[in-house]
Design a protein around this nucleic acid. Structure first.
Length: 300
DNA sequence: CGTTTTTGACCCGCGC
DNA sequence: GCGCGGGTCAAAAACG
């Protein structure tokens, strides 16, 4: 594989596109939040597969898109105004060319386009939904120079296809763990090639190989990492975490080239059981930076 | 030598 | 039935 420096600019973890849009939201790139795991058999974190011993930064960062199998899971739709909350207000390494409203506009545009495509697909699949059972899928939009982002799991590429009307191919990956059927698709946005759209399908049935190494602080690192990404609290309070299953990206961390600055209130982390005095120590000692940079080194 | 990537072939569903 | 597009398979190549 070609080795190149990993540089992820302005990660937009708060901006997944919807795998399907309900007919009444005008496809304006609205987020749906699975904030009620009781109504569906699979709650948000179950679908994503978080795990008690190792909450991932995605516990906080990721937002699910509606499952193609269960669009009814959509509980809440945020207005586009909500999308305009700054995702990384303190990030000093944010892409200078595309920050603030511009990024929001790009995201919304990408979400719109993706959503419209998905809607078409959904309409088709609804007709024949009885035939093919699909795993719940989640998509994440990331502004990144690299296609395949490190998420803590090991993936094996099993296919690549040219995307219609796009000069960028779509790559298909499978989790390398035996008996794990999780797949992911990686493609670049039509509207903005600098945006990578990663779609996860299925649930991991094993812990992350990356974070599995014994480390008393391991479960804190990713929590702190999440805090470090300066998430708007609004984006993080709308669902109930369920640390009881495995998932696509739990225990993972991303190789982001960004400033580690936390704006997550410690009270919130406490509430989620993520904040411990040691986490504060970790932050103070820059351990997170070590984790991230070590991973980045691996990629270099 | 085991693992991963590449890539053309193949399968399937859908629209015409 | 045919063509198209999405997704997967699998053999060969590349890699560590």
């Amino acid at each position: 594989m070609e080795e190149k420096a990993v540089k992820v600019e302005n990660p937009i973890w708060s901006s997944p596109f919807l795998d399907c849009f309900p007919p009444n939201n005008h496809n304006t790139g609205l987020f749906n939040f699975l904030n009620d795991g009781e109504k569906s058999s699979l709650g948000f974190m179950e679908l994503l597969g978080s795990q008690d011993f190792c909450p991932s930064l995605f516990d906080i960062l990721e937002v699910p898109i509606a499952s193609t199998e269960a669009p009814d899971q959509t509980q809440t739709f945020k207005s586009s105004e909500d999308l305009k909350q700054p995702t990384t207000p303190n990030s000093s390494s944010m892409s200078s060319a595309s920050s603030g409203a511009l990024v929001d506009e790009q995201i919304t545009k990408a979400v719109e386009e993706e959503g419209q495509q998905k809607t078409k697909t959904l309409l088709k699949t609804k007709k024949t939904s009885q035939k093919r059972q699909r795993e719940p899928r989640f998509a994440f939009i990331t502004k990144s120079e690299v296609d395949h982002l490190e998420d803590g799991y090991r993936w094996r590429k099993y296919g690549q296809k040219a995307v219609k009307n796009s000069s960028f191919p779509r790559s298909y990956y499978r989790c390398t763990s035996a008996s794990c059927i999780v797949k992911k698709r990686v493609e670049r946005s039509l509207s903005d090639p600098s945006i990578v759209v990663t779609t996860y399908e299925g649930q991991h049935n094993h812990p992350s190989p990356v974070m599995a190494r014994p480390s008393p602080a391991g479960s804190v690192i990713s929590a702190d990492a999440a805090a470090a990404f300066s998430l708007p609290v609004q984006m993080t309070l709308s669902y109930q975490p369920q640390f009881n299953s495995l998932g696509p990206m739990n225990c993972g961390y991303m190789n982001m080239n960004m400033t580690m600055t936390s704006t997550i209130p410690s009270a919130y982390l406490k509430e989620r059981g993520l904040y411990t005095p040691s986490s504060a120590l970790l932050r103070d000692h820059g351990l997170l930076q070590d984790v991230v940079t070590s991973n980045m080194k691996k990629e270099e």
